[in-house]
């Protein structure tokens, strides 16, 4: 428990650092973004309108540190301001619209990749040298070698545009969210297939190979031999010891993968016009929409931290040696 509490404190600190970086990073861009933002949207602005809009947008010329304190205070109150690129919509409205879809697409594809990849890897390692072991790695490696957007665009072009097997975009068919019925869920799942499939296809390779190689390493270790020598059943050895230990690198990677769900899915969401946060983020960054960017950064940062914390906890359960090692 002490270990977990220590990790928690650490993540809180990391969150603070990240939030701080989030504030200062976009403000490193040169020029006077405030005026540019306002000038972009109207060619007939005079000084008075400019200043009025800046005030409405919450853009001030106060010293950075004062703005920073205000920013921290607003975060604590859950006040994220209004989006500049979608004025006067509150930032929270934009985020709540895309949040669920990003999570759905991200978790589905990452978990499928993780489970399927680890299983395939364990299988390949167990039957090392077999046909599956010879065939699966190169095939998966080849698929994983394509730049994601390249494969996604090709598949979009073939399966969504030419063959029209899958919808060309959106998360469901109706305009209003679908009802929570079997058909509604089926509709959502159907829209999920193409984007999730491309992510799984490209990312399966590393999961499988990491698992296979870790597994081979573990299988050759002395204590396993000892376990076998003690007469434990091979299957039990495999699942209770080998898989559990060999899974560690993949579990570590899982934390990063889940954390990267929002920004990593950006290209998927663009190619398949999926209504997640990744594309909002890209737009917020490229239109210097500070309030939206900060809120998205915050959400992403927190999700990474939570994911890592969960993974750390799981790690402890899987490998008690880490726990004792840390405490020693």
């Amino acid at each position: 428990m002490l270990y977990i509490a220590k990790r928690l404190a650490f993540y809180l600190l990391a969150a603070f650092v990240a939030i701080t970086v989030n504030f200062f990073l976009p403000r490193l861009t040169p020029g006077d973004p405030a005026s540019t933002i306002v000038a972009t949207y109207s060619t007939t602005l005079n000084e008075a309108s400019l200043n009025a809009l800046k005030a409405a947008y919450g853009l001030t010329d106060e010293p950075l540190f004062t703005q920073y304190v205000t920013y921290l205070g607003n975060i604590l109150h859950g006040d994220f301001g209004r989006s500049l690129s979608n004025f006067p919509a509150p930032v929270t409205a934009i985020i709540s619209a895309g949040f669920g879809w990003s999570i759905l697409l991200g978790l589905t594809s990452v978990l499928i990749s993780f489970v399927l990849g680890s299983a395939l890897g364990a299988l390949a390692a167990w039957r090392r040298g077999g046909l599956f072991d010879k065939l699966a790695p190169p095939v998966l490696l080849f698929l994983g070698s394509f730049p994601y957007f390249f494969l996604a665009l090709l598949l979009f072009y073939l399966f969504c545009f030419k063959l029209q097997w899958f919808p060309m975009g959106n998360a469901y068919s109706s305009v209003n969210p679908p009802p929570f019925t079997l058909n509604g869920i089926g509709d959502v799942l159907f829209h999920l297939i193409a984007p999730a499939f491309t992510i799984v296809l490209v990312s399966l390779g590393p999961w499988t190979l990491n698992m296979r190689n870790a597994m081979i390493g573990v299988l050759s270790e002395d204590y396993l031999t000892l376990a076998e020598a003690k007469g434990l059943k091979p299957r039990r050895v495999l699942f209770a010891h080998a898989v559990r230990t060999a899974l560690l690198p993949n579990v570590t990677a899982l934390g990063a993968a889940i954390g990267g769900v929002f920004s990593g899915q950006l290209l998927t969401e663009i190619v398949f016009t999926y209504p997640g946060l990744g594309y909002s983020l890209m737009r917020a960054v490229s239109s210097v929409d500070y309030p939206l960017m900060q809120a998205l950064f915050l959400i992403i940062t927190l999700s990474v931290l939570v994911a890592n914390f969960v993974v750390d906890t799981v790690y402890v359960l899987l490998d008690p040696r880490v726990r004792t090692g840390q405490e020693a």
């Binding site: 097997w165 209003n176 079997l182 509709d187 799942l189 297939i193």
Partner: peptide, 23 residues
């Protein structure tokens, strides 16, 4: 294809049986 068509079938079923929305 079976997966895709199965999903397709469920979607078309949805289109037929869905309660009328105010759209």
């Amino acid at each position: 294809r079976a997966v895709a068509l199965g999903a397709l079938a469920s979607v078309s079923a949805f289109a037929v049986t869905a309660p009328a929305l105010a759209e």
